[in-house]
Design a protein around this nucleic acid. Sequence first.
DNA 1: TCTGGGGTCCTAGGACCC
DNA 2: TCTGGGGTCCTAGGACCC
Length: 394
Amino acid sequence: MHQSPPIAAIRRIAHLDMDAFYASVELLRYPDLRGLPVVIGGSRRRQGPGEGAPAEHARLRDYVGRGVVTTATYAAREFGVHSAMGLMNAARLCPQAVLLPVDFDEYRRYSRLFKAVIAQMAPLVEDRGVDEVYIDFGAAEGGRALGGRALALRIQAAIHERTGLTCSIGVAPNKLLAKMASEFHKPNGVSIVYESDLAEQIWPLPCRRIHGIGPRMSARLEQLGIRNIGELARRERGWLVQQFGRSHGGWMYEAAWGLDERPVVQESEPVSMSRETTFERDLHAVRDRAQLRALFTALCEHLAGDLQRHGYVGKTIGVKLRYDNFQRATRDQTIDGYTNDAALIRRTAGLCLKRAPLERRLRLLGVKVTGLVRSDSVALAAAQPAAPAELSLF
DNA sequence: TCTGGGGTCCTAGGACCC
DNA sequence: TCTGGGGTCCTAGGACCC
């Protein structure tokens, strides 16, 4: 006979996702743009009428550069514009769209604002970046009423009142389902999902909708004749493990059956910090040596500043290269002890760079520090004498 | 003039130690 | 001389996410 778990053991977890967050924040600033196609994106270079004329918004058609779409308003999305699309491509689909530069400080300000509203209404909230959170509704007052709908509506209203922004919320027995549910009625929607909704609401969805299945894996699944989550659920666990490995295959099977035990965690420590930059034009290690050196040093200094500001030190220093053909390479090296010192990072990253192929031209260079711990918890790496100039390639 | 920047987690081989 | 485990750290790469 089927045994239901006690009510208190059934979790109710919400996933809250701000609607077109960056674009919506910009619309608060420029209400005249409401309803128009607006694209927020990389502000590398611009030319044309927008330049030097702050009264007039820049148009997407005038953009020249390597930036991508960070967010687009729903009006722009109707033209096929979406996040991560190159701006030059987006301009072909919707040349008349207004193009606004990214203003992270402002988005972070609104991020703190809406999260503070949630914190007043629920004790356990997990940060998932600037525009998303998980909320343990089981631990919140009134979080189980109407399966979570009551609290979700109150949170939506409170956020809108305090910020003027809308969000979408999914409430489900776990994070995996809550994340999928928050997309069901976007924008400004609330979706309630129970375990018993699995076959009807989850199984018809494409596998890609599972958080963690991206373009590569969904293509492989399709090759295997698996087009939606229901078809995935019908496969044997052992067969999936055979195809995708013990960890991935097992996880995919669980996900297809709507199973996910991950808790909502309030705090988590960072693992790595990095800085990277894509050049306006591809650079060659020899012919553009001076320019590369300067950029490289600046990256290391910024990264050291980030570490110091946040109070972390790390022990593995690495570089990342992207070549003109878009292939990439990484090299890293672990030092004795921990550091957040710009010169030591620069020197170690220089040694990493020397081990990487440098025949092709580069379009991106990045520096990264991993193995982070709080700087007040360890002794720093011993200061070392500067390497002779010829030791470092750049 | 396709394709940003900042992250997480996993895999897999080799070194090295017990 | 040959034949083993297991565990951990290091390095390189890849998939995925916001």
